[in-house]
Amino acid sequence: MTSIAARTAAEISQRGRIRSAAFQGFFEGSIKATLIALTLLSVLTTVVIIAVLVEETIGFFTMADHPEISLWSFFTGTEWSPLLGAKPLFGVLPLISGTLLVTAIAGIFAMPVGLLTAVFLSEYASPRTRSILKSVLEVLAGVPTVVYGFFALTFITPYLLQPLSSSFGTYNAMGAGIAVGIMILPIVCSLSEDALRTVPQSLRDGAYALGATKFDVTAKVVIPAGLSGVVAAFLLALTRAIGETMIVALAAGGLAQLTVNPSQQVQTMTAYMVQIFLGDAPAAGVEYRSSYAVAFTLFLITFIMTWTGAIILKRYREEYE
C-alpha cells in the first residue's frame, strides 16, 4: 500500500504547472543585487564619514586668516579657548584630558562592579535571580543617556559628592564620570558575562574535580580563560564612554582645562561639539571648523579602540570554536 501511494504521489507531483525558470532566475538575481546594494550602504557610510571629517579638518588647518593653527599646535597646545579672548587658542590636550578623566572615572566604577556582577550572574546566581538581574540590567541599558545626565545633576553631585567635600561644584568631572560609569555598566556586565559563559563547563568540572573551591575555579580558571573576552568588553565599554555626549554636556561643565582633579569642571571633546553646534558660531568661522577637527580626533580614537576590541573578540571566539 505504501508503494502504491508512492507511485500515486509521484504521479500527482507532475500535475502542477511548472513555475517559470527564467522568471525565477531574474527574481533571484534582483534580490541578490538589492541585498548587495543594502550591504554597501554601510560601507558608504564609513567612506562618507571619513571624507567629510577629513575635508573639513583640512579646511580647519589651512585657514588663510589663521596661519598659527597647525597639526603640531593642535596636538601639543595646552590651552583651548576658541571663544574667549582676543586670540583664540586651539590646543586639543585639555579636551582630550577632560575626556580621559571622565572615562577613567567611569571605568574605575564600571569595570570592577560590572565584572563582579558578571561573575555573580554566571557562577553564583540561581536561574531565577539571574533572570531578574538580567532584566534590571536591560532596563539600565535602555535608559537614555540624557536621563543619566539629569541623575548626575540632581542626585549624584548634590547628594553623594557635595556632602563629602565642599570642593565639588554643580558641574564636575566626578559626577559626570560616575553617571557615564552607570551608563556603561550594563555593557561591561553583559559582554563579560557572555565571555565567562563561553568558558567550557568541562574546564570548571576539571578544577572542581581537583578539589578547588568556587573562588579557585572563578579566579584561577574561569576569569583567566575568559580574559580576552573580558578585555574586549572593557574596551568596547570605554569606547562608549569616550563618545558619550549628553551626560557630559549636562553634568561635566563647559570649561576646558588641563586637570586631573575630579571635583573640577572639565570639557570633553563631545561636550565642545555640543557647545559649538548649539551656539551661534558662524558656519565658516574658525570655532565652527575646529569642531570638525575635534570630531575627527574623537573618531580616530574610538575607531582604533573598537577595532582593537573587535580583533580581540574575534581571536577569542576562534579559540573556542
Binding site: 500500500m1 505504501t2 508503494s3 501511494a5 508512492a6 500515486t8 504521489a9 500527482i12 507531483s13 500535475r15
Partner: peptide, 9 residues
C-alpha cells in the same frame, strides 16, 4: 491529494 499520498507513502 499529493500531501495525503506522500504521507501514506
Amino acid at each position: 491529494e499529493l500531501v495525503e499520498q506522500s504521507l501514506r507513502a
